[in-house]
Amino acid sequence: MTSPLLSSGRPHAARAQDPAVPAPGRRRLGLDAGKRRAGLKFVAPALVLLIILDVAPILTELFYSFTKFSLLKPAHLVGFAEYEALFSDPVFWHSVLRTFYFAGVLVVVGIAVSLGVAVLLTQTIIGTTFYRIVIFLPQTVSYAAGALIWVWLFNPTSGPINTLISSLGGPSIGWLSSPGIAMPSLLIVSLWRDTGYYMLVFLAALANVPTELYEAAHLDGAGSIRTFREVVLPSIRPAMLFVLLTWTLGALQMFTQAYVMTNGGPGNATLSVVLDIYKEGFQDLSLGYASAESFVVFLFCLVLSLVYVRWFRTRID
């Protein structure tokens, strides 16, 4: 099955015109020239915006990563000095590890939950529309608003969760204040907020699996687990790649939850790379350093995306 998401730059084969329609050579030439002019015109607005808003910034960032630069003093070139400082900074590596930990757990658990829920809601049970709306509801709450709601739920002294635990005789848990638990708490918030959307993506993909495939598997005597592994999973692979890519890249850019709920604490336990870039760049005004950090993380993301795409392509063949 070919998917739009996986077919890459397929050259657009110039199709022969319908033989039923006589197309004199001159007129066809005119058509192609018209197409060419139209193509340039149609692509121009997006191209100009991409160059100004994506290409120029990444090149600017690359340039400033070789400078020492605070907003107060003009930039001066220092070669790889900021990169050297970055690579020898334990806080940077710590934030990279914390971010990968966050993204890894979120994506793995998240895919299991959202796919599981999607499969559950394709079963013949009553009220699937209702369940779907409820699970999608957190998606309407922004990360900042969701973080605020959970700051209250996690409140150590009077928050609902600890109140419930203490009424059952349990200990008071520092959801956001103990270093080992703070990141899992942010993961709970993110999982709660994100699952609805990816559930919808999986539901759309599951709806497109041809019923004949299920019937064939049934005739072969495959049980539900084998059917899932050998029929469902291969059929929804394009959706899986989409979810994996967007969720991973989104999680690697985590900022709002940490900014609102913990400000990176306790003791940098929830310091994501983007929060670190924000602090370095706009609180300490080390813009050269923060540029180098952004560029390195960008390379991490690029490599990871390419690995995903590659991995999925080879598995499709």
Partner: peptide, 16 residues
């Protein structure tokens, strides 16, 4: 550009 995480561009966008 598809693989450019927007949050990593904020410094340069800010300066631009």
């Amino acid at each position: 550009t598809l693989m450019l995480p927007p949050q990593l561009l904020v410094i340069a966008l800010f300066l631009l």
